[in-house]
Design a protein around this nucleic acid. Structure first.
Lengths: 186, 186
DNA sequence: GTCTATAATCCGATAGAC
DNA sequence: GTCTATCGGATTATAGAC
């Protein structure tokens, strides 16, 4: 169990950490395994020792957020009305985005992650259920646009690099306030 | 001036159209010139006849939106107060996102586009001025988060595929209403 | 666990025939 | 204007030495 000069934790954790940082900067398709290895000061084969393919690595990076999402879906689906389900999912989304702030920035809208998710039935199902819970209930055109502003606003405000200096607690509070304000317009 | 079997307009316009569609689906880094050529039913060299490099092609695809942004910056900078400038830029952003709905989806957050913009001083300057105008004035932490929700909410609601069925006019109206509502919280 | 070496593939880009 | 052919380089991934 020799460890590299840079970073802490297990070799696997250090690869995940480096991958996350580089995915965030260059996107998944713009990040080669060579770049990840170089950042860690190791050879390309050292990365392949931890993950048998790039797809496996991306999946491992992305896993924690989809675990949270699946948990949130399970909780919300136990509720009885569409409005209650949406409220739980949206406020759960806020907490999720804040908790996984750095990670969320990585996968949000990345086409490589999107197609990877679509290729895995469990992940695709979770995303589909999540979307259904958010857009559930009968909304008119105006409501749908406002709801999209809320959900995407939460997501992208949480990951905005310009807001990186704001603490998790402050961010959480402001997102909750803004959401409460907008959700009245539905 | 022979023209290919598929599509309309000049050869250059057809390449731009195909590139935009594929960039939106797979991202810039996930789209090879071979894919673009294949979609048009031509060879790779036919694309290189219209654009001397992939960078040139990406630049040409992205150009219209940065032209609009530069125009908006010029108009806003002539105003006297920070609040007036921000109002003009934000409402201009709404119109811009609706007008370039499909294109905006392509470049929003694409790392390849980001680094291309950063490598071109004119484009980088325009983006920087735009950001400065939006975040101008003195805002507290809460205001900064709300503003990020507004701006990113506008952007991503305009490009949301789930809202593709909504007309430009309806989308414009709802975005303006939601923004007016949220901007009171600043 | 990490290394070098290498295989197979794909990329962007160029040259030149037609 | 479009084609084929090809170059050099980078990529994912594997094999085997240490």
């Amino acid at each position: 169990m020799a460890r590299s000069v840079l970073g802490r934790g297990t070799a696997r954790e250090r690869v995940l950490e480096a991958a996350m940082a580089l995915f965030g900067e260059h996107g998944v398709n713009g990040t080669s395994l060579q770049m990840i290895a170089a950042r860690l000061g190791v050879g390309k084969a050292a990365v392949y020792y931890q993950f048998r393919s790039k797809e496996d690595l991306v999946l491992a990076v992305v896993e924690p957020i989809y675990d949270d999402m699946a948990r949130l879906v399970t909780i919300a689906e136990a509720l009885s009305t569409a409005e209650a389900r949406r409220d739980v999912v949206v406020s759960g989304l806020i907490e999720m985005c804040v908790r996984h702030r750095r990670l969320a920035a990585v996968l949000y809208g990345d086409p490589a992650v999107d197609s990877l998710v679509q290729s895995r039935p469990e992940l695709a199902a979770t995303v589909e259920q999540f979307t259904a819970l958010v857009t559930g209930g009968n909304l008119d055109t105006h409501g749908r646009v406002i709801l999209a502003m809320i959900v995407n606003g939460i997501y992208t405000a949480a990951i905005d690099p310009n807001l990186a200096d704001i603490s998790d607690a402050d961010l959480l509070q402001s997102l909750q306030a803004g959401t409460r304000h907008l959700i009245k317009m539905l």
